[in-house]
Simulated scan of single mutants.
Amino acid sequence: MVSVLVNGRVCKDPKLVEANDFFFSGLHLAGNTSNAVGSRVTPVGVAQIGGLNALGITAARIDFAAWGLNPPHTHPRATEILTVLEGSLKVGFVTSNTENRLITKVLQKGDVFVFPVGLVHFQQNVGNGNAVALVALSSQNPGVITIANAVFGSNPDIPADILAKAFQVDTNAIYSLQSKF
């Protein structure tokens, strides 16, 4: 028997497919938000549901502690649609480099917001209680680039003089930021 790869994943023989190939249990469980940013993303992609392979979608649950943040990030291969299940979230994205305009809104339970493919975006809980959101992404491999982690936590480090010039700050500020990642 020859294994066939699609999108880097083994495609299961359709005659051997079963319900568990299209199933995930766990989105009812709160993610641990006791971290530096106060949020946790629980992904539901092809790694969790093999049957998603080649279907072009993924999902995730995002849990937020009070005032927790899903930091500025981008999905280079997917548009994201977010639904607030509990709490209130301030969400936003920045338009392309030509304008750098911030589009932002405070969402309540049941509200939906769309983040266009590739744009830097964020979500922040603006309440004193926990918040929960469910997201869907238009790719089985949306990718995620968290801006601060990528810039200040690269391995090896981006040279401090380059970042200092780019951010127009002193190199000591860059060293301080890099030490946090």
Rank of each mutant, 00 (worst) to 15 (best):
A166T: 14
V2C: 04
V6H: 05
A47E: 10
Y175D: 13
F64P: 02
I158D: 04
V135K: 03
N35I: 13
R77P: 00
L102V: 13
L107P: 02
F113N: 03
N70I: 01
A164S: 13
N130E: 10
L107N: 10
A36F: 09
G129S: 14
L16K: 09
V114D: 01
L177I: 04
R40G: 01
P159H: 09
L5Q: 13
F181D: 03
N149H: 12
T79F: 00
G45S: 14
N149R: 12
N128P: 03
T98E: 11
A36N: 10
N7K: 03
R40K: 15
T79C: 09
A136H: 10
N128E: 08
S176C: 09
I62T: 15
L89R: 00
S179I: 05
T83N: 10
F122V: 04
V46L: 06
S176H: 09
A59N: 04
L5C: 01
A150N: 14
A36D: 08
A47I: 01
Q140H: 11
Q140F: 01
N130P: 12
L177P: 03
G92I: 08
V46A: 10
G143K: 02
F113T: 02
N7G: 08
N53Q: 10
A36T: 13
R101P: 01
H28E: 14
L163R: 11
V10N: 11
V84A: 12
Q48L: 04
K90N: 14
F181C: 15
S179W: 03
A60K: 01
S39H: 05
I162Q: 14
G129A: 14
L5F: 12
F24A: 00
A150P: 03
V112S: 08
A148R: 06
G8W: 08
V37K: 11
L107Y: 07
G51A: 07
L52C: 06
K12A: 07
G118W: 01
A30W: 15
V169F: 13
G8N: 07
L137I: 04
F122H: 05
N155T: 11
L5K: 12
A66T: 08
V10L: 03
T83A: 11
V37H: 10
P43F: 06
L107H: 13
K109E: 15
F113S: 07
A66S: 14
P71A: 13
L119A: 03
R77V: 00
